[in-house]
Design a protein around this nucleic acid. Structure first.
Length: 574
RNA sequence: CGGGGCGUGGCGCAGUCUGGUAGCGCACCAGUCUGGGGGACUGGUGGUCGUCGGUUCAAAUCCGGCCGCCCCGACCA
């Protein structure tokens, strides 16, 4: 591809409003362009990278026997009503009507469609196990997109679905996908770690997320460096120290002016935060009022709370008015005297004697509150966030917290969808059984961005060979003064192209500085320079982008490399 | 949805407070020179200043509505 003809432009200035290196570089190097919030065009270079990532994923899916197919982006709403997710999912699902006034949605994922197909096609246990996958556009109207390709609203995802006779089959396919994911991310040049994850709206019995550590990541991971423990903070349960036993003392009001926060309260009373109880107020999507009580030295984990109260439609913070209406006072809140509220108490609170809790009147707290003596929880559960330094549940060593970006996930769905759609098969026993399903996603664009995050320097991108849009970037210098240079450049380009392996050929009449700068920004793994100087030195100069290793190779050798797909060892520095 | 910020040529910005001929750098076009690290000079192209309305002799500038984008939070299979 001649750079002079490529639909692309590089930007000299950094675009405003970009935070992440991948966003900045993909924009500046002409790989992507934004169309709207969270909506991007892939320019030819960006499209080529994405296709190469897709091909890696395809090969590994095919390797484990998953069959490629394609399912629609636009679904009749009935499909989502039948699974119930039409009602569970909020505004992130785009809904519209077609000309016949029928409710339609844009697909966020494809479990429903797979289950429908299973109902039609799978009749016998002999047709199972089976795995399918496709690459398809998803649209999720996220409240907030960010980070370039990291978090977008429209994106292409590889989603695979395993279909099994029983749990054992699901486990086997789950392990196959897990292993395939490890191969995929290794090939993409990503150091991904699998963490235990919440099953969320997908339902099901188990899940892993594959995470790349990144300070801009939106997920918090709880990791143990001493063993292999790794969980998303959403579900991580770590050790908690046993409280010092005390005899339960009688409750006693204490005046606490302006102590609306745990820190202020602890300071005022000169007690550790661990001697206080913190109240957090939420309303569920199905309109129940929740009071969550954790000890003052912990934070409420909303994912765990959602799961405990089985909150349909999630949780939102309660308003001041809603709190007052239940007989409580924000800043001085506790379940004491609360009404019409679901009280969820962290198990550590139950074990901790004589805590200071809110009195539900401004300026007052109550000392020596003990559960369940002083109020009755509706649920007692572990509902706190793991903290850095807390003991690992496996080995007891202190855990660390890290930010991560989710580059893939695998879910054990179970039979929720197959039961909802009546996707059953006849087993060997002659009985109907629901297909046991699993779901496995990888977002292509997000992976492209993460590859850039992992493979760049101050000059630009440095693509791994496996995903580079072109294997090599050929730069000619002085071609307009020396016809021989242009001829050599044209010939090398033609050799690669006719071997079916196009390279990027910077044939522009630009200065050496401009060409080198662009070559380093665009990030092809090999930069080949042909100039009067290189010819005098014996051929072409070949530079490894990632390392800067450089050597001069004879043109005949270079031609052979180009024919052979440029799969060459790093040349020794001449 | 709450808080904050921003919309002026392809990109980055000034001009807005204090109303009066729409500017700068980069990019782009033509030419000359230069020629291995975003080179120099000369001459050019391109903008109804997000949009609608109001105030005014006069609006990029003041006022109001709307739209869009970014950041923080909420949210996130």
């Amino acid at each position: 591809m001649r750079l002079s003809q490529l639909f692309f432009t590089s930007l000299r200035d950094d675009p405003a409003d970009v935070e992440m290196p991948s966003h900045r570089l993909l924009l500046r190097a002409g790989y992507i362009r934004q169309l709207g919030s969270g909506i991007y065009s892939l320019l030819p270079l960006g499209f080529r990278v994405t296709r190469r990532v897709e091909q890696v994923v395809r090969e590994e899916m095919d390797r484990i026997g998953s069959q490629e197919m394609e399912m629609p982006v636009v679904h009749p709403a009935e499909v989502w009503k039948e699974s119930g997710r039409y009602y569970k999912i909020g505004p992130e699902m785009v809904r519209f009507k077609d000309r016949g006034d029928r409710d339609m949605v844009l697909a966020m994922t494809h479990e429903e469609v797979v289950a429908l197909l299973l109902r039609d096609i799978v009749q016998s246990y002999r047709q199972l196990p089976m795995m399918v996958y496709h690459f398809q556009t998803k649209f999720r109207d996220e409240p907030r997109s960010r980070g370039g390709l990291i978090r977008v609203r429209e994106f292409v995802m590889k989603d695979a679905y395993s279909c099994d006779r029983d749990e054992a089959g699901l486990d086997a396919n789950y392990r196959l996908q897990y292993a395939a994911y490890e191969r995929i991310f290794r090939r993409l040049g990503l150091e991904a770690i699998a963490v235990g994850a919440d099953v969320g709206i997908m339902g099901g019995s188990g899940a892993h997320e594959f995470m790349v550590l990144n300070d801009f990541g939106e997920d918090t991971l709880v990791l143990c460096e001493a063993c292999n423990f790794a969980d998303n903070q959403q579900i991580a349960i770590v050790g908690k120290p046993d409280p010092t036993p005390e005899d339960a003392l009688p409750m006693e009001d204490v005046e606490t002016p302006d102590a609306t926060t745990i820190d202020a309260l602890a300071t005022l009373l000169d007690i550790p935060r661990s001697k206080t109880a913190k109240a957090a107020f939420f309303v569920t999507g199905d309109d129940r009022f929740i009071v969550a009580i954790v000890r003052g030295d912990y934070d409420v984990n909303e994912t765990k709370l959602v799961n405990v109260v089985k909150a349909r439609g999630g949780l939102r913070p309660a308003t001041i008015e809603e709190i007052k209406a239940r007989g409580m006072e924000a800043g001085y809140g506790s379940p004491l005297g609360a009404r019409d509220a679901v009280v969820v108490v962290d198990e550590l609170v139950v074990r901790s004697p004589n805590l200071v809790a809110g009195a539900n009147r401004v300026g007052w707290h109550v000392k020596n509150v003990n559960v369940p003596r002083d109020y009755t929880p509706d649920h007692i559960a572990e509902i706190t966030n793991a903290r850095a330094g807390d003991p690992c549940p496996n080995c007891g060593q202190p855990v660390v917290l890290r930010q991560g970006i989710e580059v893939g996930n695998i879910f054990k769905l179970g039979t929720d969808f197959s039961e909802a759609f009546g996707a059953t098969f006849l087993g060997e026993d002659g009985q109907a059984h629901p297909v046991v399903m699993g779901s496995y996603g990888i977002g292509l664009g997000r992976n492209v961005a993460c590859i850039v995050e992992a493979h760049h320097d101050e000059k630009g991108i440095a693509w791994p060979d496996e995903v580079a849009p072109y294997a090599a970037h050929l730069v000619t210098i002085g071609a307009n003064r020396d016809p021989q240079i242009a001829e050599i450049g044209d010939r090398l380009h033609e050799i690669a192209a006719s071997a079916g392996r196009d390279i990027l050929y910077d044939d522009r009449d630009e200065s050496a500085g401009v060409k080198f700068t662009d070559a380093e920004l665009l990030g092809m793994p090999w930069i080949v320079t042909v100039s009067p100087r290189s010819i005098a030195a014996g051929g072409a100069e070949v530079t490894r982008r990632a390392t800067g290793d450089r050597s001069t190779v004879p043109l005949e050798t270079l031609e052979r490399w180009l024919r052979d797909g440029f799969e060459i060892p790093v040349p020794a520095t001449a």
